[in-house]
Simulated scan of single mutants.
Amino acid sequence: MMEVVLSGLVGTIIGAAISAIGGEDFRRYRDRQSVAGALAGELDSILKSIPELHIGLKGMLSIVREGGQLPFPEFPQSSNPIFDANTAKIGLLKPDLARDVAYVYGQITAFQTSFHSLSKHHQDMPPEWVSAMIERCIGMIDDNLAMAKLLVANLTGEAAAENLTMFKAWGLGAITFAGLGCLFAAIYCAWSVSCFSH
């Protein structure tokens, strides 16, 4: 009789442990999807502004090369709020995707710093420096645009991907439910044997 109760208890503990592990796996899967979707949205928003910015930088370069002054106010240092808020969660992404996110956002930050520096110092610095900074900004766009677009597509795919984690979570829930059923059945058997033996 005690063997029945003990086996039910062990089954329940094992089922609960497996379910807890599966629940954590499912939570990480959902977090990975959320981070991927949020980063894809922020990057896509940045990319939407690139064509106009690229044209503007080329126009500014022409003005400087012709000896003109840039009618260019100082811009504040830009930030990437979604990336900044989720930096600690980048590790949830697949390794290649995490590497690409770090690289592309590193390039975006470098561009933002250069553009801010250009807007702040273009009136105080010689035309050669101004031209070099504009060329640097144009070069960063040209060198990284294709990779950034591909990253948006890959992040969007990751955000929409369904994998076996959902099925694992349901399966582990079923194991836990079965374990609890075994425990209750064992307790009922032990109780009925003790009740009817008197």
Rank of each mutant, 00 (worst) to 15 (best):
S19P: 02
A190Y: 14
F167R: 15
V152A: 12
T113S: 10
K89S: 14
I175R: 01
T87M: 10
Q107H: 06
Q123Y: 02
N163K: 13
Q77Y: 08
F83A: 07
I14F: 15
P73R: 05
V101L: 10
L151M: 09
A178F: 15
Q33V: 05
H54S: 14
A88S: 08
E158Q: 12
G157S: 10
A85G: 06
E66F: 09
K149Q: 08
H54E: 10
A36P: 07
N154Q: 12
A161R: 15
G67R: 00
G171S: 13
G15P: 06
R136M: 07
K58C: 03
A159Q: 04
R32Q: 02
I175C: 08
M166E: 04
L43K: 02
I108F: 03
A102D: 10
L57C: 14
T113C: 01
I108G: 07
A88W: 00
S194M: 11
I18H: 07
A185D: 09
L97N: 03
D44G: 14
N86Q: 06
I21V: 11
I187S: 01
I90K: 00
S19D: 09
I82R: 08
E162D: 06
E42M: 10
F111P: 05
D142P: 00
A38W: 09
V193S: 02
K149Y: 05
A38Y: 06
E24M: 03
L172Q: 15
Y29E: 03
